[in-house]
Design a protein around this nucleic acid. Sequence first.
DNA 1: CCTTAAAACGAATGCTCGTTCTTCTTTGAC
DNA 2: GTCAAAGAAGAACGAGCATTCGTTTTAAGG
Lengths: 198, 198
Amino acid sequence: MCAMPRVSEAHLAARRQQILDAARRCFMRDGFHNTSMQDVIAEAGLSVGAVYRYFKSKNDLITAIAESVIGDASTMFEELARHEPPLSPTEAVERAVTFVERETGPDGLLRIALQVWAEAMRDPALAEFVGNAYSRMRGHFVHLATRARDAGQLPADADVEAIGAVLFGMVPGYALQRMLSNGPDAKTYAAGLRTLVP
Amino acid sequence: MCAMPRVSEAHLAARRQQILDAARRCFMRDGFHNTSMQDVIAEAGLSVGAVYRYFKSKNDLITAIAESVIGDASTMFEELARHEPPLSPTEAVERAVTFVERETGPDGLLRIALQVWAEAMRDPALAEFVGNAYSRMRGHFVHLATRARDAGQLPADADVEAIGAVLFGMVPGYALQRMLSNGPDAKTYAAGLRTLVP
DNA sequence: CCTTAAAACGAATGCTCGTTCTTCTTTGAC
DNA sequence: GTCAAAGAAGAACGAGCATTCGTTTTAAGG
């Protein structure tokens, strides 16, 4: 006898991803709360039961999408931090802003990120996850600021935590401008930054 | 005969405000989409019919709250722009950030602003309103940048639009950090800004 | 005090939602 | 081929939603 799974691991993972992809499209289009489970189910081309096998509630689905979006952003910031040769703080912001510009389009990550931010105000578990992720991202900029200070590009007594926060803040600040008003493109923004921060 | 109103103008305005206040509290607590009309009605201590006399739909109520929140922020930025003697760009950001710190608390304006941003992704009418308001706010910083350039504090060929955008972006950027992670307080942030932008 | 229309009320409505549950199908080991 | 367990399906359900509407209350002009 045996209790082996009836389908391959790969099949299960693919199905799960199929649902996640559908949910992402729906959430991008209508936001978390104007998307019904029926919408996701139809978009995935599956049945109610199938979807509920993989995600036990709508909130589970929202959380999964939120974590994947925040995870993607984290990855980007980590790559900036790991870059060789090390980037100057300004260069790092410039690259982040370029990424943001790409992802603020009609089907960009940041449209969902905005939903996640709003959702985090109501869901403490999500708030903690987002808070940790954003602290880590800010940490990368603090690290860059530290390096710049040690290289003499900043005063020796500079508060690297504060400077890291300012640098990091510019990125979502730019994202909001892009999504809400018709702010400047990444290149222009970067030029402005370089004028302001010598 | 006559068709005079049965109650005073002031009474009508007060009732309307009573509903708006209740809605603001509810929306702050649960967000737009997890607040039911029943919640607002109960919070206002009125009847269904009374509320629907003043706001013909939930969306009307959301729009009214959104416009009032954005309006409050606009007022703040206008005061910064009008300040005498004129503020330097850095000073203006510092003051804006102090305002933000005050309004990111559990019952601060910015918690609703975050909801509004997310809502604007779905509601074109709201998107236009928010977009215009934010363009105007950015404009104030562009104006400050222009003045700084003309005073020789910035290169003569500086792109004031871009610099204004960078300055303005720092404000929502700081707001997000405060609301989502435990970012630095306004004073620390301002100090970081001053170190970075001489 | 009576009339009248605005204002407030709240039961009722119809619909949509997230979720459950029973049934049918597929799968892979034997 | 057979069987048992897992996967998929989708009808059904109850709760909760925004909104409507017929009724009652209120307040001011005559």
